[in-house]
Amino acid sequence: MENIDIQKYIDMALLYASEYGFKIIAALIIFLLGKWVAKKLTAFIKKMMHKAKIDKTLVEFSESIIYFTLLLMVVIAALNQLGVNTTSFVAVFGAATLAIGLALQGSFSNIGAAVLIILFRPFKVGDVIETGGVTGEVTDINLFSTILTPVDKRVVIVPNSSIIGANITNFSNREQRRVDHVFGIGYDDDLKLAKETLMEIVKADKRILSEPEPFIAVSELADSSVNFVVRAWTLTDDYWGVYFDMLESVKLTFDEKGISIPYPQMDVHTDKQ
């Protein structure tokens, strides 16, 4: 009796294996081969878009959309091979998508924000921007977030919806940037000498542009110093080099010429009785 039951299960297993085994294997082959083709085709399309000199931001965004669409087609083809009614599957998938969409409204708002970033292009991959309290180079824009890399090489992931809802400062959108500094000298120092010295420092730096012309003027008679505003234009790529080098040059040159850079202080006078 036991042998008959065992044989029955064996026969049933062989029946199901013969009926569905080849379908499962075929579905796996379709999925694995289709996934490989999807990757290769996406990489080929990306290469063609680069050759066509399409904007890098649009290329990176399109890559995600193309690969996801191709992979979805592969999954449907694999399920169809298994005998699953893909029409019903699409309906179920649509209902599931609606339910997931309601649960993940925030994530879909990020996708909507990504579309707005691509359409209106407030920045692109490679730009240096400030948004959401973070300043860094844009290294990637995907469906859900924008990846920023600050100067210290951290990786900061900012949700796209946070970017669209905040102020965006793009430091790379123009070929030129203005370096702004304020330098103070003592009230007893030679004002004309200090102004001439600042102009000499500015003109000695070949990275500073002659047009627009540099601007130097007294901006404030402060409590402890006479303050000069210095404004000079440079190429965007040279901005930080000029910014820091000017600070060092002014300090060293003022020291050589005996021009003081005062710090906040208070003189107290007492009356003798």
Rank of each mutant, 00 (worst) to 15 (best):
G106L: 05
P212W: 12
F244R: 11
D127N: 08
D188P: 04
S172K: 14
V151S: 01
I24W: 14
Q265M: 09
V90R: 05
G83Y: 06
A38I: 10
A222S: 12
V90S: 09
F144Y: 04
K272L: 10
A232Q: 05
E60D: 04
Y239V: 01
I157R: 02
E211M: 10
N167H: 13
G106H: 07
I100A: 13
Y67Q: 02
T169Y: 13
Q176V: 15
T146I: 00
A217K: 07
L252N: 12
D152I: 00
N170A: 11
M73A: 09
I76N: 01
E175S: 14
D5M: 08
T42A: 14
K195P: 04
I45Y: 14
N85Q: 06
P262T: 09
S161Q: 04
L191V: 14
Q81P: 02
V155N: 01
D127S: 01
G34F: 14
L198C: 08
L209H: 08
I4M: 12
F171D: 09
F22L: 13
A217V: 08
T146S: 00
S249E: 10
S62I: 03
H269M: 09
D237N: 07
N160A: 00
F68H: 02
L41Y: 13
V37T: 09
K124I: 06
T131N: 03
L116N: 03
Y67K: 01
F123Q: 01
G126C: 02
D271G: 06
V158P: 00
G165N: 15
R207G: 08
R174A: 15
T86K: 04
G94W: 08
D152E: 02
V155G: 01
A91E: 08
I259L: 15
I76L: 05
H181R: 15
A13P: 07
F244Q: 09
D189H: 09
T169I: 14
Y263L: 15
T131A: 07
G112K: 02
V92Y: 12
A17W: 15
S219F: 05
V128C: 02
K257N: 10
G106P: 03
R154A: 02
R207S: 10
A77K: 01
D267H: 12
S224T: 06
L104T: 07
P159A: 00
K195S: 10
E248Q: 10
L32E: 06
T139Q: 05
N170V: 07
D152G: 02
Y9T: 10
L221A: 07
S64C: 07
L98G: 06
F244W: 09
S172F: 12
D5R: 13
S107L: 08
I201K: 03
D205T: 06
K153D: 02
F183Y: 14
P212V: 05
D152V: 02
P150D: 02
L28S: 13
R178I: 13
G83C: 02
K35V: 09
T139I: 08
V151N: 01
T69H: 05
M73H: 06
V128H: 01
Y187N: 07
E60Q: 07
V202D: 07
I216R: 12
F61P: 03
I29P: 06
I168W: 11
A77F: 04
D245S: 14
